[in-house]
Design a binder for these strands. Structure first.
Lengths: 226, 226
DNA sequence: ATGGCACACGATGGATCCAATCACAAGAGT
DNA sequence: ACTCTTGTGATTGGATCCATCGTGTGCCAT
């Protein structure tokens, strides 16, 4: 699969524009580039050792993934979302991701389900927030990995990308008090996936996303006032 | 609104890359560029009177809208979808578009609803298929026009773009026998919008999209065998 | 002192040229 | 006759240079 839509890692042999996109994607998702930050083509080109042209193409790639926004003659910046916009993104997730999961579930191998379980075990042993964000993403993305529809998987990934920063802000704020709830939800979800039960899978996943949305939107301080 | 995500027309004063994207978008949506067709950068640049660079950026824009697919060193082509992929795109529409409609509905002005009604009247008077495709798109997009969430509107537009060609193929095949059903569904939808009733609006819209999906997937001959 | 305008600097968009990659075809070897 | 190889042409990716647009600063007028 040459498509970079779902990949987070950086293939070293790829074309320059995709290498640059990978680097920037990683920096945004890790939070080193925060919402509102501007991305100057010159600076990036110099820092990553290429010309500005691949940088421009990389910014287009990232725009299609929802990680930056481009405005003609004004440049690229990491999008700043209002609370309403985050809320809507979560409502989109509540509707789309169950479809992604159901489509993927029927094609998941036993080994892939076992991988999900191992990731969940790591989540339960873990206490670091940055690591939780990585593991949580890995857990859900693993459940979507066998989705045969590229557009569906790409949109799901895009929704995760767009909300990543606010998930982190929420975790840093609320701490890991709610980890027991998250783990219970993940366990139920995992069990439904193992049983290949689409109804339960959809129910638990919607509940999981919805609860996160409700808790998250109770903290207006994690977004710009607007 | 400078965003090109939902626009179909070509602003003449825009930057070259967006002008090129507009032209190509129009050619793809109108069916002059069919699935499987290749888009050569040189040829496009010469035809539209620009250098290849804006063409490359335009292709990236169109890729993010789902209208072309890019592969490194191999170029761009209009995506060819299998029946399963079209089916999944319609299932995505069934889940996403009701949300778009509900979000938009509460902000629609009376004048905008009146516009929807005028478009529906034109649909009922019309018998040309190419014109129906335009009007049908205008009818639904008008109902989404007041959606405050850019990502949601962009994704909805993207789903419409990706399925446009197969809608046309289906209409050319099935003719306009089913226009009575379409008109009845549109009228119900319009009434629900006028009453600002989110439950009915969602019910009718899901039914409308679902019926189209079911009828469309009964015609495997409109897609590549695969 | 404050608001508005003009100019200069910095950043982005576009054009041209060169390099790398791929696809197809012709030829040699088995 | 078939297949593998190699070379050539076509096409895309990348670098550099120039044009255009935004933005910030500073001056001037009110």
């Amino acid at each position: 699969m040459t498509s970079a839509s779902a990949a987070v890692v950086a293939p070293d042999d790829a074309v320059t524009s995709q290498r640059v996109a990978s680097r920037l994607r990683e920096e945004i998702l890790a939070g080193r580039l925060a919402p509102g930050d501007r991305l100057r083509q010159d600076e990036i080109a110099a820092r990553l050792g290429s010309s500005r042209l691949p940088v421009r193409e990389a910014l287009r790639i990232l725009e299609s993934e929802g990680l930056v926004e481009l405005e003609p003659h004004k440049g690229a910046r990491v999008p700043e979302l209002s609370l309403d916009e985050v809320d809507t993104l979560y409502r989109m997730r509540e509707r789309l991701e169950p479809l992604t999961l159901v489509e993927s579930m029927q094609h998941l191998t036993g080994e892939q389900v076992a991988h999900m379980e191992r990731v969940q075990e790591q989540i339960e042993e873990n206490s670091d927030i940055a690591r939780f964000l990585l593991l949580d993403r890995e857990f859900h993305m693993s459940s979507y990995a066998a989705c045969p529809s590229q557009p569906l998987l790409a949109m799901t990934t895009r929704l995760w990308n767009s909300t990543q920063h606010y998930r982190r802000a929420f975790m840093l704020l609320a701490g890991s008090d709610r980890s027991a709830v998250v783990n219970a939800e993940h366990r139920l979800l995992l069990d439904a996936v193992r049983r290949r039960d689409p109804e339960d899978a959809e129910r638990f996943l919607v509940g999981h996303i919805r609860r996160t949305r409700v808790e998250l939107t109770q903290h207006p301080e994690i977004v710009v006032p607007r």
